[in-house]
C-alpha cells in the first residue's frame, strides 16, 4: 500500500492505495466521487474523463499512485460556486445533450478541456475532440450543439432538434 495525496476539486484528499488502484477507483471508492463513471474499463468510452493538472485524461487508465501530488477536477467540481450548473452543464440541459446520462460526466469534462484550448471550435473540431467519448443514446448531434452553444456560438443552423 502507498499513501497518495492530491487536490480534488480544490480540496486536499489523501488515502492508502494499492499499486494497481486506478485513479477512477480511488475517486469513486475512496472519495465517494461517483460522478466519474466507468463505462468500458478499456480506455475506449471516455465516461471516466477527469482533469489532471488541467488536462483531460481517462481516469480508468491512470494509476492513483501516478496522480500523487496532482490537481484533479471531476464532474463534481464543475458547478458554479453557488451550486448552479456551469455554462457547459446548462447548455447540455438546454439543448438535450443527454438521454440516459451515463456518458455525460465525461462529455462535460472533455468539452471543458476543448473550450479551454479552443474557445470557439467549429462543429468539425467539436466532433473530432469527442473521438474518445462514446454516447450510445443521442447520436451526438445535441451534444455537439450544446458544446457549440456553451462556447457562445449561434447554434440555430446546426442539425437535429
Amino acid at each position: 500500500m502507498v499513501q497518495v495525496s492530491m487536490t480534488v476539486n480544490g480540496r486536499a484528499s489523501s488515502g492508502e492505495v494499492e499499486g494497481r488502484t486506478l485513479l477512477s477507483s480511488f475517486l469513486r471508492d475512496d472519495l465517494s466521487l461517483t460522478g466519474t463513471h466507468v463505462g468500458c474499463d478499456t480506455s475506449q468510452c471516455g465516461a471516466c474523463v477527469v482533469h489532471v493538472n488541467g488536462e483531460a485524461i481517462k481516469a480508468c487508465t491512470m494509476l492513483a499512485a501516478e496522480a500523487d501530488g496532482a490537481e484533479v477536477t471531476t464532474i463534481e467540481g464543475m458547478a458554479n460556486a453557488d451550486g448552479s450548473l456551469n455554462v457547459i452543464q446548462q447548455a447540455f440541459q438546454d439543448h438535450h445533450g443527454l438521454q440516459c446520462g451515463f456518458c455525460t460526466p465525461g462529455m462535460v469534462m472533455s468539452a471543458a478541456a476543448l473550450l479551454k484550448e479552443n474557445p470557439e471550435p467549429s462543429e468539425t473540431e467539436v466532433r473530432d475532440y469527442l473521438e474518445g467519448n462514446l454516447c450510445r443514446c443521442t447520436g451526438y448531434h445535441n451534444i455537439v450543439k450544446a458544446i457549440m452553444a456553451a462556447s457562445g456560438q449561434d447554434v440555430s443552423s446546426i442539425a437535429a432538434e
Binding site: G46, A56, I57, K58, T61, S110, L114, Y129, G132, N133
Partner: peptide, 9 residues
C-alpha cells in the same frame, strides 16, 4: 493518435 485524453497521457 488515439483521442485527446489518450494523447494527454
Amino acid at each position: 493518435i488515439g483521442d485527446p485524453a489518450v494523447r494527454n497521457r
